[in-house]
């Protein structure tokens, strides 16, 4: 019996030692010398591998930063300026101040505003629906409602609203990684500056059809009438191909344009409710 124990211990122990030696040799031979700073940077990154920076994951991002030796043109959207600052401190570099961004869904063609004219059946992805037809309401620019963006979101910052059939962005969770922007086959989602107190004004439509055609499919489409362009004193609104666009760098949140929009395509977010009185005054002034 003792012999068996002895042999077992010896053979297993011997095998273990042998393997350890082999492993050690292999590890030494095939060692890849890496800049330790890459690890330093990677530690400070969120590690979601979302691809928002434009690189293949956090590791690749770290490698590229170390290779470049400066932080110009690098930004980690989920981490924001805080993370970039940390990295800058760790590497002894300067970080540009990046303004936080947020994803914005530029379509309001809800089931009510843009009633479905057809029933879609098949593979439930926007990519397929986009290749098949113009969409449930007939608007070739509008949201297809199959939720490719929601699937692409790695931060639980999106969900599909069953009542409207449109995706909703949960601002607190959104890190502006841009995954949804890439996932949307119609480029409906845009990254916009978060703005002070998350206040934003934007045109919630990207339909470039003529006003009448767009209006036929959707009550809240931008019809390209240009009223908002005239109203804006800061040249923040441009009209191109029957579609108004508000430049978030120029917009001062003066709140003049939303009321003049005949279809209500201009949306305000997180702004305090308008005082009825104020509005009346404005109206009287205009008159």
């Amino acid at each position: 019996m003792n012999e068996i124990v002895l042999y077992s211990v010896l053979s297993i122990g011997g095998l273990g030692t042998l393997m350890a030696i082999v492993l050690y040799i292999v590890a030494q031979r095939f060692k890849v010398i890496e800049d330790p700073r890459i690890d330093t940077v990677e530690e400070r990154l969120p590690g979601a591998n979302c691809g928002g920076c434009g690189y293949a994951g956090c590791r690749n991002f770290a490698e590229e930063i170390v290779k470049a030796g400066s932080l110009d043109g690098f930004n980690c959207p989920p981490g924001g300026s805080e993370t970039m600052k940390e990295i800058a401190d760790a590497l002894g570099l300067e970080a540009e101040e990046q303004e936080p961004m947020v994803a914005v869904v530029r379509c309001s063609g809800s089931l009510e505003a843009a009633p479905p004219k057809t029933r879609f059946e098949g593979l439930n992805t926007c990519a397929f629906a986009h290749s098949l037809y113009a969409g449930r309401s007939g608007c070739p620019y509008g949201c297809l409602g199959e939720g490719d963006c929601v699937v692409s979101c790695a931060f639980d910052a999106m969900y599909m609203d069953k009542d409207t059939g449109l995706p909703v962005i949960i601002e607190e969770n959104c890190v502006a990684c841009g995954a949804c922007v890439k996932a949307c086959p119609r480029d409906i989602i845009e990254l916009r500056k978060k703005g002070k107190k998350s206040r934003r004004i934007f045109v919630s439509c990207i339909n470039k059809e003529k006003g009448g055609v767009a209006r036929k499919n959707c009550k809240v489409a931008c019809i390209g009438c240009g009223k908002c362009v005239k109203e804006c004193k800061f040249d923040a609104i441009t009209l191109e191909d029957n579609l108004a666009y508000i430049d978030f760098n120029k917009c001062t949140l003066c709140r003049k344009c939303p009321p003049v929009c005949p279809t209500g395509a201009i949306h305000e977010v997180n702004l305090p409710p308008r005082k009825v009185k104020e509005k009346k005054e404005e109206d009287s002034k205009e008159a």
Partner: peptide, 8 residues
């Protein structure tokens, strides 16, 4: 009229 189905 009921909605037409669109599918591949």
């Amino acid at each position: 009229m009921s909605l037409l189905t669109v599918s591949g």
